[in-house]
Design a protein around this nucleic acid. Sequence first.
RNA 1: GCCAGCGUAGCUCAGCAGGUAGAGCGGCUGAUUUGUAAUCAGCGGGUCAGGGGUUCGAAUCCCUUCGCUGGCUCCA
Length: 645
Amino acid sequence: MSERISIRVEKSVLATDKGTRLSKLLAGLDLPAKPVLAEVDGRIVDLDVPLDKDGDVVLLYPDSERALDVLRHSGSHLMAHAVLDLFPGTQVGIGPAVENAFYYDFLRETPFTTGDLASIEARMKELAARDLPIERVVLPKAEAVSLFREKGQTLKVELIEEKAGAEATCYRQGDFIDFCLGPHLASTGRLRHFKLLSVSGAYWKGDERNQQLQRIYGTAFFSKDQLEGYLNLIEEAKKRDHRKLGPELDLYSFADDLGSGLPLWHPKGARIRAVIEQHWRERHWAGGYDILYSPHIGRAKLWQTSGHLGFYKDSMYSPMEIDGQDYYLKPMNCPFHILIYKSRLRSYRDLPLRWAELGTVYRYERSGVLHGLLRVRGFTQDDAHIICTPGQIEDEILRVLDFSVSLLADFGFIDNKIDLSVRDPKNPDKYCGSDDLWCRAEASLVKALETRGYPYERMEGEAVFYGPKIDIKIKDALGRLWQCTTIQFDFNMSERFDMTYIGEDGREHRPYMVHRALLGSLERFFGVLIEHTNGNFPLWLAPVQAAVLPIADRHDGYASGLVARLREDGLRAEADLSREKVGHKIREAELRKVPLILIVGDKEVREGTASLRIHGQGDKGPVDIGAFLAKAQALVRNRSLTVLW
RNA sequence: GCCAGCGUAGCUCAGCAGGUAGAGCGGCUGAUUUGUAAUCAGCGGGUCAGGGGUUCGAAUCCCUUCGCUGGCUCCA
């Protein structure tokens, strides 16, 4: 008679024989979905695991991030296995699961090309079909080292020597073995739905001084539907890529002769930007900010004082000499705002000061990092500096947090992820400012987040050297996160520029300074907005809000009159007076994604109306012009995200 | 910056065992006067990203510069 054990699974407590496989135990349970892995005593295991003692079992379902990580990690092993089969002599680096994907780094004389992906994937399918068991093997360190050395895997040897204790945990499948902590799936046959995505370079251990390896990315899912869903998402993202849509909709362009990373805003893009800027200004004035302007260049002395020439020079454009003085293009606006602060003596009665600027800055970005509008060399920050007394800081942080969230919501971004970046506790020396300052700053950030009940992730070691910060990432229509907002304490500038205010006590005090950008950069925000809306801008932002299409040229006069009237009432309208059939004009207007389309022919001229068509929705029938205008203006005023008639 | 890939008309792309460039759409001109996603016809348009080399001859092969893409590193 075998020993009985007691297992708690999903609220049920089950008694079973010692050694029973978990899958067998689960067979008798009525589960909401099919689990793929389980966590027993804090370890992720396969469902085939024999249960040998009392314990809690947490089931992991295919939508669980942790289960997917295990799947993808096994996927990376399968890929490495296939690569070593196909390309003997290749060395393997590391191969983890990452968000939505996995990768493995390889060292091989001939670099992989995208053409190699198909054959590697085919070999992976073969290895999966053989359903090789994936076994955990623990070897004494010396044995592991000599094993991998024999195989010529010197990168692995290096890893084992660095990371393994007395023993090295490895995973073996067929003739492939890898130094790895796991966990993994039970066998290669569990990997059914995977796809290799791309090849790229990556530095060994992420350090650009090290040799460059070749990284192959792939992804894997538990079901075919999920894999296809993900691949479709990539396709959809490609379709709404702002680098494709932007030029297509004539919003912006880049020119080779201009230089890379320097966007040109075309009339329609500029119109959207102007609307954004106008809204931004109004919100800022209403929100207690003052707006500043400052020049694009400044003397070297300024940048020495600010410290930029010390710690930021690599990202600055080379100086230009004027009258024997070096001037630099500004990479940040802060020094200018500080000079305005210092232009007179400040009293505690003047504080808080909230100074904002749409400041255009230039930063030298390495050519490889440029990316459409999302990463450029010349861009306009919606910058602001809040200068206040220590006693005001908590209120000010809360205020700027509320203001940020509310401004983002105006554009339809209501699903945000918030990161709190704090010091690296292991490395206190690399930060400026006193311990006390850091603690108080961090406390005020935390307090603001908790007052509003916003969930946030604490990122240790992610703070910049001059202070802790809150970053807000907005989630777009495809669920992707984009960093826009940053709210940063700055303990550095106030010291360097010796900023002071006269307190109630008549003595000089050091103000707190908070640096913030809400949309981040107008360029990046615009790029995200294009992708988020797929170019279908909400009515209040649409560069052309209404297109008036006369059916025949005898209706041109009526159409032009209608456009004039709409414009007088503040609607951005255009008439299409080309000699095309109305079907063609409609197609053109739809392709330009004009939200409101007004068609006018004999009937409309006779009755003084227009026939309304809404982009993406089709024919809405005749409308009275006055009623149309009122409705359109209301949609603009409310910044409505959809056009519902 | 690094690794890999790419750069042919405004756009999408064909041409590439080396023999001085083509299509569709867009544009222009003309005809058509049109009712909810493409009317017809004609005509223009490219030092094949720039420069250099190999060759009798280069869009095609090689080198180099610039730009773009996917990553690495960095960041708004």
